[in-house]
């Protein structure tokens, strides 16, 4: 079927163009911040990709969670496809978040990490789980037992989210410290808001395109594997 692939490629192309435009706008068009109030005034522009990356990694982890639950409960192949895609994209976008966040933190606050920051630590936990799942999928035999374990790991990873939320909240009470990701409670400049919105939309298109294409490729790879196994059996019998 060419349609899902064509749609996927269209989404990816549109999303990529949108991301590039958002990045360029963020660098050249977004207003400057007050240099007397910011230690690294240019570094703030990291948010124009960092925040959309965070949003997209959130979507990817949702896909991973739904896939893990689906396989855990029903052992359905479409669910496994979601585990594969969700873990790949969770790793991709999560990695972007947990590298760009500390880079900004070093520039602005002089500290790369804050154990009291809920979002950063939750993303780090989930990215580590995604990395584990990607490595496990690549290194292990692909059978029901392996998939069961990987789905369990995926669900375990999601149990870590509320645990991390409670832990960081409690820890923050005693160690208020610096929050790496700025709170959105302060009003945003309209230009900044627009560029962020365009980043969100572009990244979502990109994400949807990646999901569609990745699912399609994994499904094709599974079909191919089935054909190859038939050939293996034919060779053995022959």
């Amino acid at each position: 079927m060419r349609h899902p692939r064509s749609m996927a490629i269209a989404c990816i192309v549109m999303g990529s163009i949108g991301v590039i435009i958002s990045a360029v706008l963020g660098i050249f068009l977004a207003p400057d911040v007050n240099p007397s109030q910011w230690r690294a005034p240019e570094a703030y522009r990291i948010i124009f990709l960092h925040v959309p990356f965070a949003w997209t990694s959130f979507l990817a982890f949702i896909v991973l969670f739904i896939g893990s639950l689906g396989w855990y409960l029903r052992r359905s192949e479409p669910s496994w496809r979601l585990v594969q895609t969700g873990s790949d994209l969770g790793l991709l976008f999560g990695f972007g978040v947990i590298t760009s966040g500390p880079i900004w933190g070093m520039a602005e606050w002089g500290v790369p990490w804050d154990w009291a920051d809920l979002r950063l630590n939750t993303f780090a936990m989930l990215t580590a789980v995604a990395l584990f799942i990607v490595m496990a999928r690549r290194s292990q035999f692909d059978d029901d037992a392996t998939r069961d374990t990987i789905a369990s790991v995926g669900l375990f990873g999601f149990m870590l989210v509320p645990i991390t939320a409670v832990a960081t909240t409690l820890y923050q009470k005693r160690h208020p410290g610096i929050v790496i990701v700025e709170s959105e409670s302060s009003g945003l400049d309209p230009v900044i808001r627009t560029i962020l919105l365009s980043g969100f939309i572009s990244m979502t298109f990109l994400f949807v395109g990646f999901v569609m294409l990745s699912n399609h490729l994994y499904a094709k790879e599974a079909d191919l594997e089935r054909e190859l196994k038939k050939l293996d059996l034919a060779e053995e019998v022959g």
Binding site: A124, M125, A128, V129, L131, F132, M135, A136, S139, Q140, F141, A145, T146, T149, S152, V153, F156, G157, L160, I163, T164, A167
Partner: peptide
């Protein structure tokens, strides 16, 4: 949790220890 994988030497359980 991760020891039930057959090739357990090929995965890094430490990735989940950060919690």
């Amino acid at each position: 949790l991760v020891a039930s994988l057959r090739r357990r030497g090929a995965v890094a359980a430490s990735l989940m220890m950060a919690i």
